[in-house]
Structure formats: C-alpha cells, structure tokens
Write a protein that binds this DNA or RNA. Structure first.
Lengths: 190, 190
DNA sequence: CGCGCGATTGAGTAATTTCAAATCTAGTGG
DNA sequence: CCACTAGATTTGAAATTACTCAATCGCGCG
C-alpha cells in the first residue's frame, strides 16, 4: 500500500529503502467512508492527507447553507485546510470523501520534522507546493477570464476521472455556478 | 537597498552576514518604468522578481483584447509567470509596473542552486510558497463564494495601499468584474 | 413498486455586461 | 493662470447571463 507513497516521492526525489522506511513510518493509513469528516468547521487542524483511493472534497458552507467546493483530491493529491493548519486557527472548511476513500495521514509536526531532518524531503514539498500554486493560479485565471462552460470543458479535459466519481452538482459548485446553470451550459448548442 | 531583502528572509530564517552576502550576490537590482515589461506573452521566462518599491501587475490579454489581472505585487512580494517559469514554456502573461518600480531579480537557475546549497534557503522558499498557496485558496473561495462587492471590501481591508497606487479599472479586473460594475458597486447604498 | 437522490426544465427575477456618452482629473504648454 | 488633452471614472439604457424557486424526470436500490 505504501508503494504509492514511495512512487509519489520518487517522482521528484530519490530515496533509499531505509530513507523511505523512515519517512513512511510517519504516515498512518486510514479508510474513510461517506460522511466521515477528516476536517470540520471550527476544529483545529493538525494533519495533512495524501489520497490513495477515492476522491475527497474540501468545501465551505456559507450563511445560506450553500456548499462551495474549494478542492477535489484524487489519488496522488494532498489535501487539508492549509489556511487553518499553518496558522493553527479553527478551520472554516469541511473535508470528507465523495464516496469511501483511503488516505495516508501525516501530522504537521511530523512533516516539519521530516523537512528539517532531510533536505531532500523539504525539496520535495517545496516542489509540490510550487505545482499546487501554479494550478491555483490557473484556476483563478479561469474564474476571472472564462465563462462557466469553458471552465467545465477544461475541467473535463484535465480530469476526466472526476466525472465518473463526482456528482455534477459538486462540479458546478467547484466551477462557481449553480447546478441548474451547469446543466444548461453543457446542453446548449454552444 | 538590500536590507529589505535581508529583512524579508529573516522573517523566516536566520542568516549570518556572510550567508546573506552570498545569497544577495545572486540578485540584481533593477529599476523599471511604466510600460517596461519584465515578462511578455510568448517569451520564455527565466527570472523571478522581488518587489522593493512600487507595484507590479501580472495579467493576460484575451482574444477580445481584454486584460485580466492575475496578481498585484507590492513591496515584499514575489512575482513572475510561475507556470511558464517552472515548465519552461512560453509565457501567457505580461508583467509590468503600475507606475515605475524597483525589483530584485534572481534567475530560476540561481534560486534552485541556492536551495540546493543551503537547506535554510529551501526552507524559506517552501514556507513562502505555502503562504502564497493559502492566499490563492482564499482568493478562489472569494471568487466562487462571494459577490463582487464583498470581494472589493475584503481587498480594501487587506491591502489598503493598493487603492492609492492602482487605477480602479485594474482592481475591477483583478476582482473579475468590469470597471462599470465596480464603480456601481461601491456607490450603491448596499 | 416506490423511495430518494441527482439531474433537468420552465418561468420569473436579479445581477452583470455592453456600448455610448458624459464627467472628472492631473499634467502640459501657452 | 488658463486652456487643452489623455486617461480614468461614472452614468444611462438595453441586452445578456445567471440565479431562484418550483416542478418534473430518471434511475438505482431496498
């Protein structure tokens, strides 16, 4: 099971068996089922999650009880409430699986320890965050530049797997439109 | 002049004089005037920029010749086309100052070298990117969750300095609305 | 078979955009 | 000191787009 984690690290850094052994001892495997929350609004967040199987979502619920999806996390992705985690303030997000899922859990404390002890690991996480940063910039550009249909089409192209596992209303929320609007957009002739 | 850079690093890591000396030798100071581009669409990007004075903007121009502001960079911020830089693909952005400005320039190559040579520096940049990542997540949430007026009010609150130096039409673009809409929003009684 | 959830459709309403014109403001030169 | 210009901002009115709310449809599962 931890091979996935190793393969994930080794896309960016090389690890000896003992190095990986050491690293992986800081991760705990966890199965989660639908409606089981890894993060809940108001809680202090201590952990970060690496998705092995399934799909997680992070979202906030506004004062009208509407859900706004910030992120989907497919296998090989990381997810948590980073804002709450880094500042140690109560979370404003919920994180739970779309259906059942499996993750590896690492505490912020252990991650920081590993980064301090092993320059390689710090390098790995810097590179990872850089990629995440770029991805978010692209998403922001999409949100201010293109209409919902283009965003929808781009999302399909980039993550076709999402459409097997995620209800369209969650995708609508991720794209920043209502489910009705999304439904009309991809019906219309163009 | 380089004191700003040092202070910037030392918010996160401690440096000896000789360490900072070594780091700072990889930066070049540069003054830029209005309409002088640090990055242009179609170019390969080699450098990253640390703003010392003034305000830079990064933006793309769409097929209708409309400008979409991705980022403002005030003093103490970093800016470049990260997507183009990390993948070494032609930029899709323009970066230039709102008015004249001053920056420190470092090449990607030198930055990577410094990160490799000095664990501390890699730590610094990981922390920096983490903060940037969190900021972008907040912005995405704002874009999908709140209307333009709320986004406007939050921006004023967070970066009052922007409103002294940046024309409102650029701010409208950053917020993802037209200048007319922005103008009406902050006129209206609420 | 019927329940429940997600997806779709329709009609009316609200928000935003577009385009054009008017207004304002700072800087320049006479 | 004033007139002039360029750029930025504001305003108006019509058109477009997205939203809300309610009703209906479709499908898998007990």
């Amino acid at each position: 099971m931890k091979e996935l984690l190793r393969a994930h690290f080794e896309k960016i850094i090389d690890l000896t068996d003992s190095e990986f052994e050491y690293i992986s001892n800081h991760f705990k495997h966890k199965k989660i089922i639908k409606h089981q929350f890894l993060v809940q609004e108001g809680e202090i967040v201590k952990n970060e999650f690496f998705v092995v199987k399934g799909c997680l979502k992070s979202y906030m619920v506004d004062s009208d009880n509407k859900m706004h999806v910030l992120q989907f996390a497919l296998p090989d992705w990381w997810i948590t409430d980073y804002h709450a985690l880094y500042r140690q303030i109560p979370s404003s997000l919920y994180i739970d699986p779309v259906e059942s899922a499996e993750v590896f859990v690492i505490s912020l404390q252990d991650k920081e320890k590993l980064c301090e002890e092993m320059h390689k690991v710090e390098h790995f996480f810097r590179k990872k965050t850089n990629l995440g940063y770029v991805g978010l910039q692209q998403r922001v550009l999409g949100l201010i530049k293109t209409d919902a249909r283009d965003r929808y089409e781009q999302l399909i192209k980039q993550y076709p797997a999402l459409f097997q596992m995620v209800p369209k209303q969650l995708i609508a929320s991720y794209l920043g439109v209502t489910r009705e609007t999304l439904s009309r957009l991809y019906k219309a002739p163009k």
